[in-house]
Structure formats: C-alpha cells, structure tokens
C-alpha cells in the first residue's frame, strides 16, 4: 500500500507538471515576443507576465498539494 502511495504521488506531480509547464512556456514566449516588438512597454508586460505565471503555476502547486496529501495524510 505504501509503495502504491509513492507511485500515486509521483504520477500526480508528474502529470500535474505537464500542463503548467507548457502554459508558462507559451506565456513567457509571447511576453518576450511582445517586449521585442515594443521594448518601451517592457515593465508593464513583465508585471502582467508574472501575474499570469503565478496563476498558471498555481495549478502545478495544486498538483503538488494533492501529492503531499496522498503521501502524508
């Protein structure tokens, strides 16, 4: 049972990391593109990019929390 729990935890984190990984990649790529086109707006774009990253990353953190719950609770 304990081994199954470890596997479940690994699967939860592993699959949970796929989506946000792609999401953050797209987000930062587009933001850099935008900065390249309009370098003067860099500070505004950066702030919004960080906000977007925080929202995207939250999904990964939820996966992590689920994994921790599987492992410890």
């Amino acid at each position: 049972m304990e081994e199954l729990r470890l596997i479940a935890m690994a699967i939860a984190v592993g699959f949970g990391a796929i989506g946000p990984g792609i999401g953050i990649g797209i987000l930062v790529g587009k933001a850099l593109e935008a900065i390249g086109r309009n370098p003067e707006a860099a500070s505004k774009i950066q702030t919004n990019m960080i906000l977007g990253i925080a929202f995207t990353e939250a999904i990964m953190i939820f996966a992590l929390v689920v994994a921790l719950i599987i492992r410890f609770v």
Binding site: A54, E57, A58, I61, F62, L64, V65, L68
Partner: peptide, 13 residues
C-alpha cells in the same frame, strides 16, 4: 484556497 495554497506550496516545496 488559491492564495493560501500557492504561497504554502511554493515555500514548502
């Protein structure tokens, strides 16, 4: 939920 777990998850991780 998202506020608390984001901060907790990041720092704990």
């Amino acid at each position: 939920i998202s506020f608390s777990f984001r901060l907790f998850g990041n720092i704990f991780a």
